[in-house]
Structure formats: structure tokens, C-alpha cells
Design a binder for these strands. Sequence first.
DNA 1: ATTTAGCATAACAATAAATTATCATTTGGA
DNA 2: TCCAAATGATAATTTATTGTTATGCTAAAT
Lengths: 292, 292
Amino acid sequence: MLNPVHLRTFISLAETHHFTETAKRLNMTQPGVSQHIKKLEEQLGTALLNRFGKSFELTQAGERLYRYGLEQVKTEARFVRSLASDNIHQGVCQIACSGSMAMRLYPELLKLQKQYAGLTIAVEAAPNPAIIQRVKNNQSDLGLTTQPVSDPDIESTRLGEDDLCLIVPRNQQIKPSWQDLMTIGFIDHPDGEHYASQLLAINFPDEFRGIEKVPKTGYINQLSQILLPVSEGLGFTVLPRSSVEAFPHTDRIEIVNLQRSVQEPVYLITKKYRPLAARYQLVKELLYSQWQ
Amino acid sequence: MLNPVHLRTFISLAETHHFTETAKRLNMTQPGVSQHIKKLEEQLGTALLNRFGKSFELTQAGERLYRYGLEQVKTEARFVRSLASDNIHQGVCQIACSGSMAMRLYPELLKLQKQYAGLTIAVEAAPNPAIIQRVKNNQSDLGLTTQPVSDPDIESTRLGEDDLCLIVPRNQQIKPSWQDLMTIGFIDHPDGEHYASQLLAINFPDEFRGIEKVPKTGYINQLSQILLPVSEGLGFTVLPRSSVEAFPHTDRIEIVNLQRSVQEPVYLITKKYRPLAARYQLVKELLYSQWQ
DNA sequence: ATTTAGCATAACAATAAATTATCATTTGGA
DNA sequence: TCCAAATGATAATTTATTGTTATGCTAAAT
């Protein structure tokens, strides 16, 4: 790469058109200037100066190098300045979480983004293992999982828990039996089996024999549309309460009042020893406030 | 400025996350890597690595420096490559000439620009002394003047000549007398006095006693509008033929058939010892073709 | 607990850069 | 036209920087 000291010398020379003057300006001696220019010319394989007698003009290459150099100096100065300030309202926040979590949190996060013009919120919806992976290789700075992560590279703190809800079509009786559920079938989604297993195992301990025994009558990975087949009477599903609340046609579905409520824990994970940028303070505050 | 060698080391370290490995990759020793990183941290006044035990994570600053470094490497490579090629169809052509010359040539030059997407034509209309000045301090690479420039920094070659025309309102008799001209008066413009002096001195040697003795009945520095007052019967003026031809309402003006035609020479000037970029070949060809 | 791997530090060697001294041209003025 | 001053190039030398070797310390690994 080009030596920035040489470049600085060249810029000055291009401006003064005078070796000795340049040397004076830069607190060096005249031969030093000559050598810098020579080095640049050698490195670039082009003449930068069109010398005639004691005077010179910049060649095309020289002129371009001059402009490029000026640009570089400016760019670097800007960069170094920007480095110093870890602005709390500036930059990208890379967050990974489950789809249902995204549905619940993204609108809230966007309020932050709207409030601060320099802030950008990037949410990546992904299953738990992928979230962990993303945090490990710095693709996301902050993750929300539903399992406490034991990985030594990951730091996880419990945020709170989300109620899991059993959702059935509205015309079902309020307390559906195991048989009722098996009749209409299970509408699956990316986290569906995970959620359903937990909830069914506790509330139907005698009947539940593993999620694979439950007949599936649908699958969709568009979280916002999971409740559509349920509202059409095509099956039941299990979701965190926050996702259910985001569904518009709540009049056509029913949240079953369960004997034993099931909570799914929520963990905030970050990469160990990797300090978060200041702007994540805002995001963390928001997250904590979501679970009081 | 940041040392590019240090930067390169840092980039490699950010990618390998391993000092010894980086040293191997870059054909240096491990302590060298340590020192490079230390220097960068000192220079930037920020920690780039968050060290814990034997391992580390990039800090925010580190991450930004990594991205910045990658960008710089790319940018410079692109620049150096671009230096090599002096593309004949790429870049800006900075040309200075008189307003009337601009009027005649700019449409032609724009045809060139349209033909080659990468080419940009920048024409600066200015009086002769300003044109010379612009070429001298490299604001324009190519100038067109109506005087042979004797300045030792300037190289000038004669391109050809432009007819000077005496323009009068259409209702004038075809051969106006000196008295006729003095009655309607002179419509001045930026080059007006210069042109008029030459033309009147030769065609009215007995009457002409200097341009300052001619009554002025108008002035406009919008070249395209100079002939408007003439067409309205408000005065006469003197212009190169090319400028006259660009005026739309030729039916309302008259070009006087003079006894002795007066030509204004046209010179192409460049800065001495300053080679023109390849793209100026096209422009020069166009200019030469304009005068055969 | 002991070994190994990995980074930091110090001392030294090699390299690169800047300076001084000198020369060759050019320029500007008598 | 000639001479003195000014300017840039080059060579030799000094100085500064950079990289290496040697070594120490600490964290992991076995």
C-alpha cells in the first residue's frame, strides 16, 4: 500500500510546486522530498511529475494522485473522529430472536429508531441454535433465546418469561378435551413443536405421548399468518401470548384457559468479553422494560 | 496517518483471531504483530482488542477499523489500477473559451459526450485574459483565445479564424453609413469593444476615432440575447459569424456586407510541459475539424 | 500438577528514512 | 553573455524505525 507519509509530501509538493518549500513546510530536508516522490513513482510505476529544468508540472497520474490523496486524508480524519465517539444514538443494532419475539419486539424497536434518526434496528428472526451461532460469530450483537445457553463463549441473563397459549377456533368449547384437539389437529410453525410439547405435556400428562403422535393439519412459517388456519377452524396451535395479541381477528379464535400455565423463559445473550456499543443501552432498557 | 502495514496486520488478525497465525500469514514474527496492534491502539487512542487471557474479541473501535481497513485496501487497489489506464473515453475535459466560441462549440462537444458515456465536457466561458489565467493554473486544460499568447508558460497554436460580422436591424439600408451607425448606437457585450474596434477601424478608417467615441445604447452579457436589442432596432453590434448563426430570428437582423472583411484569429492554448490526457485527443480533433 | 500454547516485553539486528555534503543545472540579473 | 544565486538530484552518512531473537508470564489442556 501507499505510504501515507510519502503521500502527504506529494500533496504538499503538488500545492507548492516547490521541493525546498515543501521540505520547509513539513519540517524535513529537500532531498527527503525528492526521495519520497521517487518512491511513489517507483511504487506506482508512473511518472508523477513532468520535469523540465528545475520546474515541473503534474502528469495526469500525478494530478489524480493528488486528488486521491486529498480525499484519503479527509476520509481518514473523518474515520478517526468517528472512532472516538461511540454515539448512543448512532449506528446499527444487530439483534437476533425468534420469530414470535420479533413480532412482539420489532414494533417497539422501530419506535426507538424513529426517535433517533441515526439509529438502525436490524432484527434477524431465527431458531434458537441459529441465534446462538449468530452471536458467536458476531453477526448479531444481541440475541434473545428461550433456553439458558451454556456455551462458554456466551453470556446469558434471564429477562423474564412468556406465557404459552393454547389457541383453538372460536366455535370450540372453552375447555377442549384431548380428543377435541386430536380431532382438529395441530397447526405447526417453526417453534411449534417445541412450544406444544411443553404445554401439552403438563396439561395433558395422561394423554400426551410425544408431539409426533399429534396429527398435523397445517404448517406455515409466516408468523403473522399462523393463526389464520386456526381462525378457519382447521386446527389448534401453541404460541407465546405476545404473538397471539398481534393477530388482528381475535374474535375468531379462542385462548384456552389452562389448568396449569406454562411459561417459556426468555434469555438475553451476548458474546462474552465483547462490550456492546453504547447504543445497545437503549435496546437493553427497552427489553428489560418489556418484562418489567 | 495510519500506517498501511499496521492496518494490514490488524485486518489479518481480525480475521484469524490469532497472533501467531497472522504472523505466519504475513511472513513476520509474532512480536511484530503485537507491536503493530499496539502502535495502532496508541495512535487511535482506543483499545482495538478486548483481551481476556490468551484470547480476544474486537472492540467496537476494532470492528470499525477492520471494516474501514478492508474498504481502504479495496479503494486503493481500484485507484492504482485506474492510474495505469489513461482512458480515451473517460474523464472530464476542462475547456475555456470566449462566450461566442462556447456557443458555437458546446453543442458539438456535447455530441462527443453523448457518444461516450464516461466523458464529461466542462466549458468555461471567459474573456481572453481569464482563459490564459485558467490554463496557467490548471483550472482548464485547454483554452481557445483570439490572441497568440506570448506567455512562456503557455503553448499556443493557431487553429484558424472567425469572420467578424457587423449586425444591424433589418430595416436599415444594406450598407449603413458611419452616421447611420452612430445614430442607432452600439450594443455592447463582453467582447464587444474588442470586436467592434477591429472591424470599425478597418472599414471606417476616416471616421473611427476609438470605440469610446461610439455611443453605447445597450449592454448584455448573455450571449444568446445580444442580438435581441439589434433585432428590435435599438443598435448595431459586432460578433463572430458563428454566434450570429446561432440566433433564431435572423429575419429581423441584417449581416452587413463589408468592404473589407475582418477575421479574428483563433488559438488553441495549453500549458507548456503539461501533457494532455488521452481523452483530449477527441476534443482536439473536433476543434481542428471545425476550422477544416 | 505439569505441560503446552500463546501473547508480551526487552534487547538487539536489520532495514528504511532522513540528513549533510556535494554536484549539476537552471535562472535571473548585471 | 557571463556570473551568482537558487533549485533539485545524488551519494554518503547518520538516525530512526521496524523486525527478530530470546525470554518470561499466564492461561488452557492433559
